[in-house]
Amino acid sequence: MDQYHFLFKYIIVGDTSVGKSCILLNYTEKKFNEDHETTIGVEFGSQLLKMNDRTIKIQIWDTAGQESFRSITRSYYKGSIGVVLVFDLTKKDTYYNVMKWHNEILDCTHEFVEISLVGNKLDLESERQVSSKEALEYAQSNKMNYLETSAKTGQNVDKVFEDIAQRILVKIDNKTIDYTQEVYGIKLGPFFQNPKQITNTPSTLKSEPEKKDKTCC
């Protein structure tokens, strides 16, 4: 059995064929599959990450981008602490759809969720249709991190998942999130059989924010 302190649940979303599954495959297996078929429904992967003297298990759900599977995708937003929102740097229309995906994330997740906007296919720089400046400005104006990746070469792929984990740990350490509530997408691992072993016990946490009314999930 894997030994870890925390389990973080992530979801990967975005239009079809932007490279979501390839990003997941590169992160979990360091592979790239040129002939990867379009995801039908949901795929899954996990990875262990050591950070700040703690071991994190990242559980990643890769969702289909087609409209016909959106109801399935929405069900996986619930209980996620990290969201990777992917578009294709070589296809402007997938960038235009980022706003639609971002609004859906905000509607279907809790306020502690960490979102990273990812422009994929950086290896096809000569075919780029979306500038770094444009995407970065959008991300910053919407309180998201922005990274450009290549699922083919692996450039920045690890960093996407690690940056989200780092920001989640900051929220745990500064006591702004109650990590004992699984609805937030965090679970205690085998290293923490007894929650009292953790310094930030629930009694020291800030008051829980007002719950939002979720209609789509």
Rank of each mutant, 00 (worst) to 15 (best):
G65A: 03
Q129A: 10
N26G: 04
S141Y: 09
N156V: 01
V130Q: 06
V170T: 06
I177G: 07
G79W: 03
M99R: 15
S71L: 06
E162V: 12
F69Q: 02
G185P: 07
K206S: 11
P202C: 02
F32G: 00
V118L: 06
Q166W: 06
G185S: 05
V18K: 08
F69W: 09
Y184G: 00
F192D: 00
Y138R: 01
I12M: 07
V113P: 07
K20Y: 12
A139E: 02
K159P: 05
H110K: 10
D53L: 08
Y10M: 09
F6M: 03
K121C: 09
P209C: 04
I115V: 15
S17Q: 07
L48K: 11
T94L: 11
Q3F: 08
T55P: 03
L205I: 09
S46P: 02
S116F: 15
Q155P: 01
G189D: 00
L124R: 15
I56S: 01
S207F: 12
Q166A: 13
E137I: 05
K175F: 08
K212D: 01
E111D: 12
N200M: 10
Q3N: 14
F44V: 06
G41A: 07
E37L: 14
F161S: 03
L48T: 08
F192V: 13
K212W: 03
L48R: 07
F87W: 08
A64L: 07
L49R: 08
V157Y: 10
E125Y: 12
S203G: 01
N174Q: 11
T28H: 12
W61I: 02
E134A: 09
D213I: 14
E134V: 11
K9M: 05
T109W: 02
M51V: 08
L169K: 11
S46F: 13
L106V: 13
I23L: 15
L48A: 05
L124A: 09
S131P: 07
V183D: 10
G185Y: 10
G189W: 11
I11H: 07
T199F: 14
L169S: 04
L122P: 03
L48G: 00
G189I: 03
V86L: 10
R70F: 08
C22G: 06
T94H: 01
W101S: 01
L117I: 05
Y76F: 14
I40S: 01
L48S: 06
Q193R: 15
Q193S: 06
I72C: 04
F6L: 04
V18Y: 05
G154Y: 09
T16V: 14
E137G: 05
I11S: 11
K196R: 14
T180R: 09
